[in-house]
Structures are given as C-alpha cells and as structure tokens.
Amino acid sequence: MRKILFLGFNLAVICAIAAGALSGVYTLTRERIEKHIWEQQVKAARKVLPEAKEFKLEPRLAKKAQKRFSILDKIFIGFNSKGEIVGYAFQVLPRGYGGPIILMVGISGGEVRGIEVVDLKETPGLGDGILNKGWQKQFLGRTLKDPLEVNKDIDAVSGATISSKAVTNGVKTALQVFEKFATGGSR
C-alpha cells in the first residue's frame, strides 16, 4: 500500500512539472497561433470573395447549419467598406483521399465567386492537382441549378477522381448552406 502511494505521488510530481512547463509554452505561443489561424482564414476568404473588405466569423449560424451539413466548418460574412454584406465565405471540410480537404468557397447572390484550397493531405503529384487554378476555374459562376457532378458538368483531375469529387461536394454543400441560411445584403 505504501509503495503504491509512493509511486502515485512520484508520478503526480512528474506530471505536475510537465503540466507547468507546458502551460508556460502554451501561454507564450497562444496569441501567435491564434493570429496565424485567423490570418490564414481571412487570406483565403479574401481570395474567394475579393469585393469584401472585412470579414466576420459567424459561429452561431455555423452551428445551426452544421446540424444539416456536417462537412461545414466555418461561415464568414464579407462586408464592403460601407459595412454592407457583399457575400459569404464558407469553409467546408469534404473528405478527400487522404483525409479532409480544407476548402474555402466564396458565394455571392447564390453564385460561386471563387474557391481556394486552404490545406490538403492528398497524394502529392496526383490529388494535389486540385490546387491547379485552371482546374478550379470551372466552379466559378456555378449555382445550385447546375448538377455539380464529376464527369457530368465538372471535369475530374486525371488520376484524382476522389479528390475532384470531394471539392465538387464541398462547393455544392456551400451553395446549399448559402441557400438555406444566408440572409441580408446581395442574397
């Protein structure tokens, strides 16, 4: 019994020291990490919705929309310099070949304005063909009236059908979220 208490105490001390060191490093790096994440997202949002000057995150709306659209991650509302809503940027996480693809889709007036792959774990040399701007162009101007299906109205990247389908699915979901939940401005 005493032995067990001694061992437990010993382990507790080690864990306490480790926890202390980690909380120190965490405090020192937290601000920078959060800033990077925010900057990265705003950069992507600006690319897909160039007419917006400022972006605001909408966590409550996103939570509501996630109940129906599970791959939706974040919703950003884009404002112009007068503070009017000019469109939305949706971050969606469609499943690709190597895990979720982080995709930003800019939508204004029910129409795709731009897409940007923020991060991906697809096979280098094959699946990362979806990064090609020329390939991404075919999504511009699409609405929910389009079938948005690979090999129908969307050309797949050769050798990367799964990745292409994932991106298409992500764009379609963003359009559906817009249709159901987006309000105000040039809706």
């Binding site: 061992l7 010993n10 382990l11 080690i14 864990c15 480790a18 060191a21 980690l22 490093v25 965490y26 790096t29 920078r32 990490i33 990077h36």
Partner: peptide, 24 residues
C-alpha cells in the same frame, strides 16, 4: 515500476512543446 509512464510524460511534453512552437 513506473519508468515507462514517466518516460512517456517527458517525451509527450517535449513533443507538445515542438508542436506549439512550430505552429506559432
């Protein structure tokens, strides 16, 4: 008797430090 858990705590702490520093 508890050397392995102690090793793991030490290693995991350093990995977390690397993780946070790289991310920042």
């Amino acid at each position: 008797e508890i050397r392995i858990p102690i090793f793991i705590v030490v290693i995991a702490s350093f990995v977390t430090i690397v993780d946070l520093v790289l991310r920042a």
